[in-house]
Design a protein around this nucleic acid. Sequence first.
DNA 1: GCGTCCAGGTCTACC
DNA 2: GGTAGACCTGGACGC
Length: 290
Amino acid sequence: MKREFTIDCGPDFSFFHAAKSHGWYDLPPFKFDDDDASLSGAFIAERGVISFCVRGAGDKLKVTATGQTSEEVVTQVVKHVLRMEDDLTDFYTQTRSDGAMNWVTELNGGRLLRSPTVWEDLVKSICTTNCSWGLTRKMVGNLVEKLGSSGSDGIKAFPSPGEMASVSVDFYKDEIRAGYRSAYLFELADTVASGKLDPASWMHSNLPIADLKKEIKKIKGVGDYAAENLLKLLGRYDGLALDSWLRSQFYVRHNGGQKCSDKKIERHYSRYGAWRGLAIWCDMTEDWFK
DNA sequence: GCGTCCAGGTCTACC
DNA sequence: GGTAGACCTGGACGC
């Protein structure tokens, strides 16, 4: 079943800047089509896999969805992945008064694309650790292709915890090419599938940021970077989620190309308080939108 | 084509 | 708490 409808997004939302805010649009099931500036994706609903395609159209989004579910469910997922209901008022107040960051306010940036589920973001975060972006794409692509279920149009969704727990550690090594992460991914899938861990609960957790980070870091394969990256996707921006790319960008933009300590980077963004993780990301990706 | 080196983030053992 | 080495893959490079 295919349906088309629109979602009001208002004049202060930029579909393009949300969809291409970071590399997630490049990881399946997401796909960004540059020719018609559309983002497509897929998710698992009650009665099977739903695929969707979103385009920006002024103060509306045009959505095409295939599969058996309601317009409301698809709308909810689209709003979730594009961060449409995130309140960035405080952040924009700060970027507006910061000459170098004013572009974020003017372009309505700062909405970091996320997956339909915390589970998917968690697994993808682990797949970004200790490897090139090319390998991340390969691992995530293999997960979707070899373990994901298809919708009526043949488009596959990211595999559920159950689907990922149904194969062996060797499958992750040989087929997914996850290397030493294989045991981590299998163990994580098994823990979530059996109900011992519920990543979705982190979305509305009342835990202080430090405690929530500790909780997330209990998962094998998740260290400071991966935990802070996931926290950003949960709407908690206290951590910088420093990786080699972010550090190298900072050195060039703010330290004359010379290496410096992480503490210096942290001091640079400390004025943004609880928004510092979003501030560094916007600052380092400004060139993407020029 | 083959072998070697390197980058990447986290875990574990050790101090 | 801090540090060193191992983990594994793919790309770059030299031969």
